[in-house]
Protein backbone atom coordinates (compact mmCIF):
# COMPACT_ATOMS: atom_id res chain seq x y z
CA UNK A 1 0.00 0.00 0.00
CA UNK A 2 2.96 2.26 0.60
CA UNK A 3 3.74 2.38 -3.09
CA UNK A 4 0.14 3.07 -3.95
CA UNK A 5 -0.10 5.97 -1.54
CA UNK A 6 3.09 7.47 -2.88
CA UNK A 7 1.94 6.96 -6.42
CA UNK A 8 -1.40 8.66 -6.04
CA UNK A 9 -0.78 12.19 -4.81
CA UNK A 10 -3.96 13.40 -3.22
CA UNK A 11 -3.06 16.34 -1.05
CA UNK A 12 -3.82 19.76 -2.37
CA UNK A 13 -0.22 20.83 -1.84
CA UNK A 14 1.02 18.23 -4.27
CA UNK A 15 -1.80 19.07 -6.64
CA UNK A 16 -0.73 22.68 -6.62
CA UNK A 17 2.86 21.70 -7.24
CA UNK A 18 1.76 19.55 -10.11
CA UNK A 19 -0.33 22.31 -11.65
CA UNK A 20 2.59 24.69 -11.33
CA UNK A 21 4.84 22.15 -13.04
CA UNK A 22 2.38 21.46 -15.80
CA UNK A 23 1.17 24.97 -16.47
CA UNK A 24 4.07 26.95 -15.04
CA UNK A 25 5.40 28.02 -18.42
CA UNK A 26 2.00 29.11 -19.69
CA UNK A 27 1.42 31.10 -16.53
CA UNK A 28 4.83 32.69 -16.93
CA UNK A 29 4.06 33.64 -20.53
CA UNK A 30 0.83 35.35 -19.45
CA UNK A 31 2.69 37.05 -16.64
CA UNK A 32 5.26 38.29 -19.15
CA UNK A 33 2.47 39.61 -21.33
CA UNK A 34 0.89 41.34 -18.33
CA UNK A 35 4.22 42.90 -17.39
CA UNK A 36 4.71 44.11 -20.95
CA UNK A 37 1.22 45.63 -20.94
CA UNK A 38 1.96 47.41 -17.68
CA UNK A 39 5.22 48.70 -19.11
CA UNK A 40 3.31 49.86 -22.18
CA UNK A 41 0.80 51.72 -20.01
CA UNK A 42 3.63 53.42 -18.16
CA UNK A 43 5.40 54.42 -21.35
CA UNK A 44 2.22 55.51 -23.04
CA UNK A 45 -0.30 56.68 -20.40
CA UNK A 46 -2.92 57.42 -23.05
CA UNK A 47 -2.90 53.79 -24.24
CA UNK A 48 -6.53 53.23 -25.08
CA UNK A 49 -9.03 51.04 -26.86
CA UNK A 50 -7.67 52.08 -30.24
CA UNK A 51 -4.15 50.90 -29.46
CA UNK A 52 -5.51 47.70 -27.94
CA UNK A 53 -7.55 47.14 -31.08
CA UNK A 54 -4.45 47.66 -33.23
CA UNK A 55 -2.61 45.10 -31.17
CA UNK A 56 -5.35 42.48 -31.51
CA UNK A 57 -5.40 43.07 -35.27
CA UNK A 58 -1.64 42.63 -35.54
CA UNK A 59 -1.67 39.55 -33.35
CA UNK A 60 -4.59 37.77 -35.03
CA UNK A 61 -2.80 36.28 -38.06
CA UNK A 62 0.25 35.43 -35.97
CA UNK A 63 -1.92 33.71 -33.36
CA UNK A 64 -3.39 31.52 -36.08
CA UNK A 65 0.06 30.83 -37.54
CA UNK A 66 1.26 29.79 -34.10
CA UNK A 67 -1.80 27.58 -33.61
CA UNK A 68 -1.19 25.88 -36.94
CA UNK A 69 2.43 25.20 -36.07
CA UNK A 70 1.52 24.05 -32.56
CA UNK A 71 -0.69 21.22 -33.74
CA UNK A 72 1.92 19.95 -36.16
CA UNK A 73 4.67 20.20 -33.56
CA UNK A 74 2.52 18.41 -30.97
CA UNK A 75 2.33 15.50 -33.39
CA UNK A 76 6.12 15.42 -33.49
CA UNK A 77 6.54 17.22 -36.82
CA UNK A 78 7.24 20.68 -38.09
CA UNK A 79 5.62 22.65 -40.90
CA UNK A 80 7.83 25.20 -42.59
CA UNK A 81 5.08 25.92 -45.09
CA UNK A 82 2.66 27.56 -42.66
CA UNK A 83 3.45 31.04 -43.96
CA UNK A 84 3.02 30.21 -47.66
CA UNK A 85 -0.19 28.33 -46.82
CA UNK A 86 -1.46 31.52 -45.19
CA UNK A 87 -0.44 33.53 -48.23
CA UNK A 88 -2.19 31.05 -50.47
CA UNK A 89 -5.41 31.30 -48.45
CA UNK A 90 -5.08 35.06 -48.44
CA UNK A 91 -4.75 35.45 -52.22
CA UNK A 92 -7.32 32.76 -53.04
CA UNK A 93 -9.80 34.63 -50.87
CA UNK A 94 -9.01 37.99 -52.45
CA UNK A 95 -9.30 36.67 -56.01
CA UNK A 96 -12.72 35.17 -55.35
CA UNK A 97 -14.12 37.87 -53.08
CA UNK A 98 -13.15 40.90 -55.12
CA UNK A 99 -16.25 43.03 -55.61
CA UNK A 100 -18.69 40.70 -53.88
CA UNK A 101 -20.89 41.09 -50.81
CA UNK A 102 -20.50 39.61 -47.34
CA UNK A 103 -22.59 36.48 -47.88
CA UNK A 104 -20.62 35.56 -50.98
CA UNK A 105 -17.37 36.32 -49.17
CA UNK A 106 -18.27 34.00 -46.33
CA UNK A 107 -18.91 31.16 -48.74
CA UNK A 108 -15.58 31.90 -50.38
CA UNK A 109 -13.97 31.84 -46.96
CA UNK A 110 -15.40 28.40 -46.27
CA UNK A 111 -14.14 27.06 -49.59
CA UNK A 112 -10.70 28.57 -48.97
CA UNK A 113 -10.63 26.93 -45.54
CA UNK A 114 -11.38 23.61 -47.16
CA UNK A 115 -8.81 24.03 -49.91
CA UNK A 116 -5.97 24.99 -47.64
CA UNK A 117 -6.89 22.30 -45.12
CA UNK A 118 -6.46 19.84 -47.97
CA UNK A 119 -3.12 21.43 -48.85
CA UNK A 120 -2.04 20.88 -45.26
CA UNK A 121 -3.24 17.30 -45.39
CA UNK A 122 -1.20 16.88 -48.57
CA UNK A 123 1.91 18.02 -46.67
CA UNK A 124 1.24 15.35 -44.09
CA UNK A 125 0.43 12.66 -46.63
CA UNK A 126 3.64 13.27 -48.57
CA UNK A 127 5.68 13.11 -45.35
CA UNK A 128 4.04 9.89 -44.22
CA UNK A 129 4.12 8.19 -47.62
CA UNK A 130 7.63 9.16 -48.73
CA UNK A 131 9.15 8.94 -45.23
CA UNK A 132 11.26 11.95 -46.12
CA UNK A 133 11.85 14.16 -43.06
CA UNK A 134 9.18 16.77 -42.41
CA UNK A 135 11.70 19.61 -42.64
CA UNK A 136 12.63 18.75 -46.21
CA UNK A 137 9.10 18.14 -47.40
CA UNK A 138 7.58 21.25 -45.88
CA UNK A 139 10.55 23.30 -47.03
CA UNK A 140 9.88 22.04 -50.54
CA UNK A 141 6.12 22.48 -50.36
CA UNK A 142 6.66 25.97 -49.00
CA UNK A 143 8.07 26.73 -52.46
CA UNK A 144 5.06 25.11 -54.05
CA UNK A 145 2.43 26.97 -52.02
CA UNK A 146 4.31 30.24 -52.41
CA UNK A 147 4.54 29.69 -56.16
CA UNK A 148 0.86 28.89 -56.38
CA UNK A 149 0.09 32.02 -54.39
CA UNK A 150 2.09 34.05 -56.91
CA UNK A 151 0.19 32.39 -59.75
CA UNK A 152 -3.13 33.29 -58.17
CA UNK A 153 -2.06 36.86 -57.60
CA UNK A 154 1.11 38.32 -59.02
CA UNK A 155 1.37 41.31 -56.71
CA UNK A 156 -0.25 42.71 -53.59
CA UNK A 157 -3.76 43.83 -54.46
CA UNK A 158 -6.28 45.61 -52.25
CA UNK A 159 -9.97 44.88 -52.53
CA UNK A 160 -11.13 42.62 -49.71
CA UNK A 161 -14.83 43.52 -49.29
CA UNK A 162 -15.27 45.98 -46.42
CA UNK A 163 -18.01 43.96 -44.79
CA UNK A 164 -15.63 41.04 -44.67
CA UNK A 165 -12.83 43.21 -43.27
CA UNK A 166 -15.16 44.50 -40.61
CA UNK A 167 -15.56 40.98 -39.24
CA UNK A 168 -12.17 41.58 -37.66
CA UNK A 169 -11.76 45.33 -37.64
CA UNK A 170 -14.74 46.53 -35.68
CA UNK A 171 -15.55 46.34 -32.01
CA UNK A 172 -19.08 45.05 -32.00
CA UNK A 173 -19.45 44.18 -28.34
CA UNK A 174 -17.45 46.84 -26.60
CA UNK A 175 -14.50 49.08 -27.40
CA UNK A 176 -12.20 46.91 -25.26
CA UNK A 177 -13.40 43.65 -26.82
CA UNK A 178 -12.47 44.09 -30.46
CA UNK A 179 -13.71 41.62 -33.02
CA UNK A 180 -10.14 40.57 -33.69
CA UNK A 181 -10.00 39.26 -30.13
CA UNK A 182 -13.31 37.45 -30.49
CA UNK A 183 -12.16 35.77 -33.68
CA UNK A 184 -9.57 33.95 -31.61
CA UNK A 185 -12.50 31.91 -30.34
CA UNK A 186 -12.20 29.87 -33.53
CA UNK A 187 -9.17 28.27 -31.91
CA UNK A 188 -10.90 26.80 -28.83
CA UNK A 189 -13.98 25.98 -30.90
CA UNK A 190 -11.91 23.62 -33.02
CA UNK A 191 -9.23 22.72 -30.56
CA UNK A 192 -11.17 21.80 -27.43
CA UNK A 193 -13.41 19.18 -29.05
CA UNK A 194 -10.43 17.82 -30.98
CA UNK A 195 -8.29 17.60 -27.86
CA UNK A 196 -10.96 15.66 -26.08
CA UNK A 197 -11.52 13.23 -28.93
CA UNK A 198 -9.50 10.10 -29.51
CA UNK A 199 -8.18 11.58 -32.75
CA UNK A 200 -6.81 14.58 -30.87
CA UNK A 201 -5.33 12.43 -28.14
CA UNK A 202 -3.73 10.35 -30.87
CA UNK A 203 -2.00 13.51 -32.18
CA UNK A 204 -0.46 14.07 -28.76
CA UNK A 205 0.32 10.37 -28.58
CA UNK A 206 2.37 10.19 -31.80
CA UNK A 207 4.31 13.26 -30.76
CA UNK A 208 4.90 12.01 -27.25
CA UNK A 209 6.12 8.46 -27.78
CA UNK A 210 5.63 6.75 -31.11
CA UNK A 211 6.30 3.28 -29.80
CA UNK A 212 3.82 3.58 -26.95
CA UNK A 213 1.32 5.17 -29.32
CA UNK A 214 1.69 2.23 -31.69
CA UNK A 215 1.17 -0.21 -28.84
CA UNK A 216 -1.90 1.76 -27.80
CA UNK A 217 -3.38 1.05 -31.21
CA UNK A 218 -2.93 4.54 -32.64
CA UNK A 219 -2.76 4.75 -36.43
CA UNK A 220 0.48 6.70 -36.63
CA UNK A 221 0.28 7.79 -40.26
CA UNK A 222 -3.32 8.91 -40.12
CA UNK A 223 -2.78 10.87 -36.93
CA UNK A 224 0.14 12.71 -38.43
CA UNK A 225 -1.79 13.55 -41.58
CA UNK A 226 -4.65 14.80 -39.40
CA UNK A 227 -2.26 17.07 -37.51
CA UNK A 228 -1.00 18.59 -40.74
CA UNK A 229 -4.56 18.96 -42.02
CA UNK A 230 -5.68 20.79 -38.89
CA UNK A 231 -2.50 22.84 -39.19
CA UNK A 232 -3.58 23.68 -42.72
CA UNK A 233 -7.00 24.71 -41.44
CA UNK A 234 -5.50 27.15 -38.96
CA UNK A 235 -3.07 28.43 -41.57
CA UNK A 236 -6.12 29.14 -43.74
CA UNK A 237 -7.69 30.98 -40.80
CA UNK A 238 -4.47 32.97 -40.58
CA UNK A 239 -4.64 33.81 -44.29
CA UNK A 240 -8.23 34.95 -43.98
CA UNK A 241 -7.28 36.94 -40.92
CA UNK A 242 -4.66 38.66 -43.04
CA UNK A 243 -7.36 39.50 -45.58
CA UNK A 244 -9.57 40.97 -42.86
CA UNK A 245 -6.90 42.89 -41.00
CA UNK A 246 -5.02 44.29 -44.00
CA UNK A 247 -7.73 44.34 -46.66
CA UNK A 248 -5.06 43.24 -49.12
CA UNK A 249 -4.27 40.03 -50.90
CA UNK A 250 -0.51 39.62 -50.72
CA UNK A 251 1.28 36.60 -52.21
CA UNK A 252 4.49 37.34 -50.30
CA UNK A 253 2.96 37.84 -46.84
CA UNK A 254 3.91 34.31 -45.83
CA UNK A 255 7.59 34.20 -44.93
CA UNK A 256 7.29 36.29 -41.81
CA UNK A 257 4.61 34.05 -40.35
CA UNK A 258 6.51 30.79 -40.70
CA UNK A 259 9.39 32.10 -38.65
CA UNK A 260 7.31 34.07 -36.18
CA UNK A 261 4.91 31.17 -35.75
CA UNK A 262 7.79 28.94 -34.71
CA UNK A 263 9.04 31.70 -32.41
CA UNK A 264 5.62 31.99 -30.83
CA UNK A 265 5.33 28.31 -30.06
CA UNK A 266 8.82 28.12 -28.61
CA UNK A 267 8.03 31.11 -26.42
CA UNK A 268 4.61 29.62 -25.72
CA UNK A 269 6.12 26.54 -24.15
CA UNK A 270 5.37 23.92 -26.78
CA UNK A 271 8.07 21.26 -26.75
CA UNK A 272 9.67 20.97 -30.18
CA UNK A 273 10.23 17.32 -29.39
CA UNK A 274 6.47 16.90 -29.63
CA UNK A 275 3.68 15.78 -27.33
CA UNK A 276 3.85 18.58 -24.78
CA UNK A 277 2.15 21.93 -24.80
CA UNK A 278 -1.19 23.54 -25.51
CA UNK A 279 -2.77 26.46 -27.30
CA UNK A 280 -2.90 29.04 -24.50
CA UNK A 281 0.85 29.66 -24.42
CA UNK A 282 1.42 30.19 -28.15
CA UNK A 283 -1.53 32.60 -28.44
CA UNK A 284 -0.17 34.71 -25.58
CA UNK A 285 3.26 34.52 -27.19
CA UNK A 286 1.76 35.83 -30.43
CA UNK A 287 0.45 38.83 -28.50
CA UNK A 288 3.84 39.38 -26.90
CA UNK A 289 5.65 39.23 -30.22
CA UNK A 290 3.12 41.68 -31.71
CA UNK A 291 3.36 44.03 -28.76
CA UNK A 292 7.15 44.41 -28.90
CA UNK A 293 7.29 46.52 -32.10
CA UNK A 294 4.45 48.67 -30.78
CA UNK A 295 6.29 49.29 -27.53
CA UNK A 296 9.39 50.26 -29.49
CA UNK A 297 7.40 52.79 -31.47
CA UNK A 298 5.94 54.22 -28.26
CA UNK A 299 9.47 54.49 -26.93
CA UNK A 300 10.51 56.30 -30.08
CA UNK A 301 12.92 53.54 -31.02
CA UNK A 302 13.36 52.33 -34.55
CA UNK A 303 10.84 49.47 -34.94
CA UNK A 304 13.51 47.63 -36.89
CA UNK A 305 14.82 46.65 -33.48
CA UNK A 306 11.67 44.55 -33.17
CA UNK A 307 12.92 41.71 -35.34
CA UNK A 308 16.24 41.72 -33.57
CA UNK A 309 14.62 41.69 -30.15
CA UNK A 310 12.28 38.92 -31.23
CA UNK A 311 15.24 36.86 -32.38
CA UNK A 312 17.24 37.51 -29.24
CA UNK A 313 14.21 36.65 -27.12
CA UNK A 314 13.82 33.33 -28.90
CA UNK A 315 17.52 32.56 -28.63
CA UNK A 316 17.41 33.22 -24.89
CA UNK A 317 14.23 31.20 -24.41
CA UNK A 318 15.49 28.16 -26.32
CA UNK A 319 18.87 28.34 -24.62
CA UNK A 320 17.22 28.35 -21.20
CA UNK A 321 15.11 25.40 -22.33
CA UNK A 322 18.23 23.67 -23.63
CA UNK A 323 20.11 24.43 -20.43
CA UNK A 324 17.42 22.57 -18.51
CA UNK A 325 18.04 19.51 -20.65
CA UNK A 326 21.80 19.77 -20.24
CA UNK A 327 21.57 20.12 -16.47
CA UNK A 328 19.23 17.17 -16.19
CA UNK A 329 21.65 15.03 -18.16
CA UNK A 330 24.64 15.94 -16.08
Amino acid sequence: MATAAAAAPRTSGIRFGRAARRYGWTIAVYALFAVLMVVTLIIKPDYGAFEWNTLTLAALPLAFAATAQTIVVLSGGIDLSVGPLMALANVLALRAMLGHDLGYSLIVALIVLLEVTLAGALNGAIIVLTRVPDIVITLATSFIWAGLALLVLAKPTPGVPFDFQNLAQGSTLSAWIPNALLLLLVIPLVWIPLRRSRAGLAIYAVGSDRNAAFRSGVNLGLSRVLAYAVGGFFAACGGLALSMTTGVGSPLAGTYYTLSGVSAIVLGGVSLAGGRGGMLGPVAAAYILSLIPAVLIYLGIDPNYGQMIQGVLIVIVVMIGGLGVVLRRA
Binding site: R198, Y204, A205, S208, D209, A213, S216, G275, R276
Partner: peptide, 12 residues
Amino acid sequence: LPDLTVLQNLIL
Protein backbone atom coordinates in the same frame (compact mmCIF):
# COMPACT_ATOMS: atom_id res chain seq x y z
CA LEU B 1 1.88 7.77 -23.08
CA PRO B 2 3.91 10.01 -20.77
CA ASP B 3 2.26 13.29 -21.82
CA LEU B 4 -1.38 12.29 -21.62
CA THR B 5 -3.16 11.93 -18.30
CA VAL B 6 -4.03 8.41 -17.23
CA LEU B 7 -7.65 9.13 -18.07
CA GLN B 8 -6.69 10.32 -21.55
CA ASN B 9 -4.61 7.19 -21.98
CA LEU B 10 -7.72 5.16 -21.22
CA ILE B 11 -9.80 7.15 -23.68
CA LEU B 12 -7.15 6.74 -26.35
